[in-house]
């Protein structure tokens, strides 16, 4: 794939964002981050209240990039095999087995949305995380490959009863955790409530141009982006300092009000986490038509790629969302580049 191809692909990526923005209003930042994760081939955790348009957003992306879209709801009685198959009695009265949501689209599955992942049991998490990591699944005496699959999972942060928190090792498999918030501008809020086109999500996403980009080319493209977008020594040093600051923020003079910085962090970002940050930063540089990663590219993805990986002292865990935001902002403000 040549540089010219990369430039053409960038135009397509920008067009993809524009298409999504036609139907999803006030979500420029999440759209950019999801685009980044799609081109970096990273799985995403979505964070947000119910009814803010997460499903519509993902359906719109699926329509634009093509491939299969599957969704499953996390429930307390959901079992791992519910992802793989389901059984039923056919018209002839005999039992039948058909593929579950993971397998039904076969190798063309491009987006798999796990709604309220923290309502499902750890066994289900375990299976999903294995599929996310290996992109293969053994079922029906056969190895199934899911090379184009990107998992989007949503976790309900408000209700915590009958939920199973995703362990830190599992969170680490997700490239980003992206907050989806209600737009703040009055006009956008009015539009969402009074514009009838926003009431029917299925009809709404028909406005998105379908199969704008070829989902089965994304893996190759992603590799090319990672090869072509370079990082200078100064930037590598900067990323290293950021990484170290996630482990010992107190050593870098970072202070948060009412927080004992010596007790806050149990575990900082992992090597996999930082490599995912740099992967996303490279895609961000590419989307901004740059050939090298700059600190601004890291900043654009730092919170979303790092915050969910940090393991806090249980005392502070209940305030994770606020503390993580303040901490990542504090790290970016304290570490100088160059």
């Amino acid at each position: 794939m040549s540089d010219q191809n990369l430039a053409d692909w960038r135009k397509l990526a920008v067009k993809l964002e524009a298409e999504i923005s036609k139907v999803i209003v006030g979500q420029e930042s999440p759209i950019r981050l999801i685009t980044t994760s799609i081109f970096a081939r990273g799985h995403v955790l979505l964070e947000g209240d119910v009814g803010v348009g997460k499903t519509t957003l993902l359906k719109a992306f699926t329509r634009a990039i093509g491939g299969g879209y599957q969704r499953i709801e996390g429930t307390i009685d959901l079992m791992p095999n519910d992802l793989i198959y389901h059984t039923y009695l056919g018209e002839n009265g005999k039992p039948h087995v058909s593929p579950g949501p993971i397998l039904i689209a076969g190798g063309d599955l491009s987006i798999f949305f796990f709604n309220e992942i923290n309502r499902a049991r750890p066994q289900v998490h375990s299976l999903l995380l294995r599929i996310m990591a290996e992109k293969t699944l053994s079922a029906f005496n056969k190895e199934h490959y899911l090379p184009h699959m990107v998992v989007f999972a949503d976790r309900n942060q408000v209700e915590r009863e009958e939920t199973f928190e995703i362990p830190s090792a599992a969170r680490d498999r997700f490239m980003m955790e992206i907050p989806i918030l209600i737009p703040k501008a009055d006009q956008m809020m009015k539009d969402l409530v009074f514009e009838t086109k926003f009431h029917n999500a299925d009809k709404l996403i028909e406005d998105v141009k379908s199969n704008l980009i070829k989902f089965n080319k994304l893996n190759e493209l992603s590799e090319k982006i990672q090869e072509n977008i370079k990082a200078s020594d100064a930037l590598k040093n900067y990323a290293l300092r950021l990484w170290r600051a996630t482990k010992n923020p107190g050593d870098y003079g970072i202070k948060l009000s009412d927080i004992d910085m010596n007790r806050l962090i149990i575990s900082g970002a992992s090597p996999r986490g930082m490599s995912m940050t740099m992967k996303a930063a490279r895609v961000n540089a590419w989307l901004n038509d740059r050939t090298s990663v700059t600190p601004a590219d890291i900043h654009a993805v730092f919170h979303e790629t790092i915050a969910h990986r940090l393991v806090f002292n249980p005392v502070y865990e209940m305030r994770r969302t606020i503390i993580a935001r303040d901490l990542t902002n504090g790290i970016l403000q304290a570490i100088n580049a160059p």
């Binding site: 601004a296 970016l332 100088n336």
Partner: peptide, 20 residues
């Protein structure tokens, strides 16, 4: 350039980037 960055950082009490 590093000295200028350092001077800006001292003025605002944190790292100055283009976006802040």
């Amino acid at each position: 350039i590093t000295d200028m960055h350092h001077a800006f950082d001292l003025v605002i009490g944190k790292t100055l980037f283009s976006d802040n």
